[in-house]
Design a binder for these strands. Sequence first.
RNA 1: GGGAGAUUAGCUCAGUUGGUUCAGAGCACCUCGUUUACACCGAGGGGGUCGGGGGUUCGAGCCCCUCAUCUCCCA
Length: 877
Amino acid sequence: MSELSSRFDPSEIESKWYQHWLDQKYFESTPDERKAYSIVIPPPNVTGVLHMGHMLNNTIQDILIRRARQQGFNACWVPGTDHASIATEAKVVKMLREKGIKKSDLSREAFLDYAWQWKEEYGGIILKQLQKLGASCDWSKTSFTMDAVRSKGVLEVFVDLYNKGKLYRKERMVNWDPEAKTVLSNEEVIYGLEQSKLYKVKYQIEGTSDFITVATTRPETIPGDTALAVHPEDERYTHLKGKRVMVPLINRSVPIIFDEYVDREFGTGALKVTPAHDVNDFDLGEKHNLEVINVFNPDGTMSEAAKIYVGEDRFKVRKAFSKDLEEAGLLAEVQDYQNNVGRSERTNAIIEPRLSLQWYVDMKAICAPALQAVMEDDVEFFPKNQKNIYKHWMENIKDWCISRQLWWGHRIPAWFYGEEIFVATTAEEALAKAKAKYPDISLDDLKQDEDVLDTWFSSWLWPITVFNGFDDPKSLAYYYPTSVLVTGWDIIFLWVARMIMAGFEWTGKKPFDHVYFTGMVRDKQRRKMSKSLGNSPDALKLISDFGADGVRFGMLSCSPAGGDLLFDEKLCEQGRNFNNKLWNALRLIKGWEINDQKPASEADLLAISWIENKFAKLTSEIDGHFKEYRLSEALMTTYSFVWDDFCSWYLEMVKPEFGQAISKETCDATIAMFTKICSTLHPFMPFITEELWHQLGAEGDCILSAYPLSQVKDPQIIENVETLKNIISNVRDVRNKNGLKQRELLPLKAIKSANVEAILSVKGATTLLEQLAFVSEVEAVSEDIGNAVGFLIGTDKYFVVLSKEIDVESDLSEKKKELEYQIGFVNSVSKKLDNANFVAGAPVTVVEKERQKLSDGNERIKILTEEIAKLEALLAN
RNA sequence: GGGAGAUUAGCUCAGUUGGUUCAGAGCACCUCGUUUACACCGAGGGGGUCGGGGGUUCGAGCCCCUCAUCUCCCA
């Protein structure tokens, strides 16, 4: 007996095999004559740590890439990280603050030094963590969005867009993050209902002692009011035409304007207008030529223009104002209220609308081919329903604000000379352009834009730049378009849509053939996994508890495409148990003593042929699942094949009796089947399958073994064995119900029929019955024998002869139940067949089937009725 | 306000073109079992009016209408 432990210990083998794969350079890809299968990783934040979303996402990518590698493609999975402008800068600022250093005291260069140091120290931790999960990325191609190659591409694209007139600079209302002190794109603002208060504030009508009440959730913006608006048809306010009101506390006079924009139903039907701090108010202001008073500083404190509470934070001022208004008798009411509040995706700060000059990409100019490609399935989405969401967004696309008031990122390649702008990839080029117009100027006269580009402005080029696509057309031509993109649906606009646009704009091609949208990982209570809730399990701890293969199994077994994924550690436990099952199957096989003289028995040959056909069926099912990206179904199908068909049935069929040796032929066939199973499972559970592969003495490495795909050769054999299994289960059931020992030998009889004779004449069939059902003999007879419990297989009657008195009563009640069901069944079938419309309207084959069902049902009713009569007679005696 | 999706067993979900004895899987639960691969196991079992109502059809978990509830996206 081998020295293998009965518990599989993944920790021993995971690092061993990962290192082996690395040493053999199996993950590395160079272009050759094979077809490429490529995936680019959605780059995680360079300073991030592995969380459940990454685990899911990267497990799926690894499954796809490993399977493609086994299928003979030149598989290439490019890993990398994103510089994550806002998130990383925020972390560095925080780290510096803890050291007592303020960002504002540092020069741009000094700050960037710190940032790069930070990146060198913490960057890439997440990639190391991915290796623990088994990710088979081509690490020699590891990329970073701020690498020289990637950066060059970013700047070139900016210049190209500018030259094509698809990029412009404009002052408009933006989403301002007061914490990061930068503008954000619409896609980076997350809206949610929040509990707040609705303040009803009284504005005095100038020259009278009358008041008009206005409802607002943001009283701190009152100093910025430059008008009060009502609906022109609102009878409550028609008398106010031409009047003015006093802004409370500030005592500034502003006009009352009439505009149909005002919602008469909301609040009091009167609206305060603050053009500097609300998008709609800004539009109203433009229409009515109102003054714009910006009462906030970039950090969200009150500005000089506010005149009061200067320098105080806006939320403190809200409270203070409320008190002041109350004391002045100008606060009519305060209600609890729920409203939609926008927060920064990165800092979670409440967003302030703010008027500001920024760079924009003219999206309408570049989106058409990207929309078409998805609608025509040239870029195919899985699941499909994301197409509609995409379409809706693309058809209502807004220009993309790409400048950010940060230092960490790609600095905007635009140089100013007074009011004039020169856009070029380097300062020297910009100078050359400037000199054409102003021959006397020098580099010192040009001032580069202080802002950096939105992180996504480099991400949208990722599928091109990771292959150095702007400088190396050969590499791009080989790997691009990539095969599939695997990502969460939450970044369909931030990233996916923009990559498709960039692809068409700069390569003339789509960036990927397929997009597989994963679900969001949530906890059992359907809450999003988050740090603040503390409900996110530690990914590395999970791996050490259940093994990487166990965790991969757990992630996948609950992950329908696009749907939410309710994560439960129990699933990893199931994965671990599955590993253990495989491990023990290995122990069984390795424990066999082999006799190379003995030929395989008929029963063995039957078992082998059956499992081979079952396996062939499995491979084509899996193939179908993969084509539709039904990965969890592919895994679960394999799981039940391995556990039920291979372990519970096949191994029990061929397992020699205690102390006996197994024939070499049978053993070899078993090992061959087991290695094929390893190949099939490898993409899902790479570590254990590689270990088993070698323990089984198979050639080469599992990771490169051909991915099995074959056709069922003999469907009849599958059917025959299903019948045998059915008989065996019934015999076991009879034992269970009659409290008999599992191993006690009992005779099995069957009433002679064509079916019975056919199944019993299958070579090896009776041996299998004897072995697995522990029957002493199998015999076809012409009539019933006493003290036996019967069961039906189709319309055939089998019975087990018991060694002790049968429990007539319970057998009888069971048979009665069965009869009742059959009668109901036959009734519904005959009703169908009695319906002339059905017989005339349904296809012949369907009608035929119904007829067959009816006659089978009637046959069973007949048998059951006889059986019941006999049992009742027995009871009467 | 506009749009998308969902509702099937105690829980999480499959159910592909409307047609097999078709209402399924995993987990959970119950009974029995420590038989030499595995108790991280084995053998068996119970459990659902497919959200409500209506319609189309010979036939509906599946198609249509409607109502209810929930989730998400956009504004």
